[in-house]
């Protein structure tokens, strides 16, 4: 699991690569928290395009990122969702709470 980020005009883009499961989730949540606290974005794009696998741990990661952005009065958009990850997010009905593009 690898995370990269870039910022431009207070828009933070976080790109995930690899397999997102329970083993990876805790460290990833902490890394995303730190990244948001350091950059104080008004909008975050969470780019899942590089994920080769995601289970329900990914739901917890997305919801935590959403709550962090709300605490910063900002927004979260999840983009480039691979088919397998999309099925997991759809099953959880996450589209009702988070912008999934």
């Amino acid at each position: 699991m690898e995370m990269k980020y870039k910022t431009e005009n207070r828009q933070l883009t976080i790109t995930l690569t690899g397999e997102l499961d329970h083993h990876a989730a805790k460290d990833l949540m902490d890394s995303i928290d730190r990244c948001m606290e350091q950059n104080l974005p008004t909008k975050t794009l969470l780019d899942l395009g590089g994920l080769t696998f995601m289970d329900s741990s990914g739901i917890a990661v997305v919801l935590r990122a959403k709550r962090r952005m709300e605490a910063l009065s900002g927004t979260l958009v999840v983009v480039n969702i691979p088919r397998q990850a999309s099925r997991v997010l759809e099953t959880a009905g996450l589209g009702r709470y988070v912008d999934l593009v």
């Binding site: 329970h22 289970d55 329900s56 741990s57 099953t91 959880a92």
Partner: peptide
């Protein structure tokens, strides 16, 4: 479980 669990395991 911890905060890294969503409670959706059995549903999935």
């Amino acid at each position: 479980g911890g905060e890294e669990r969503s409670g959706m395991g059995f549903t999935i």
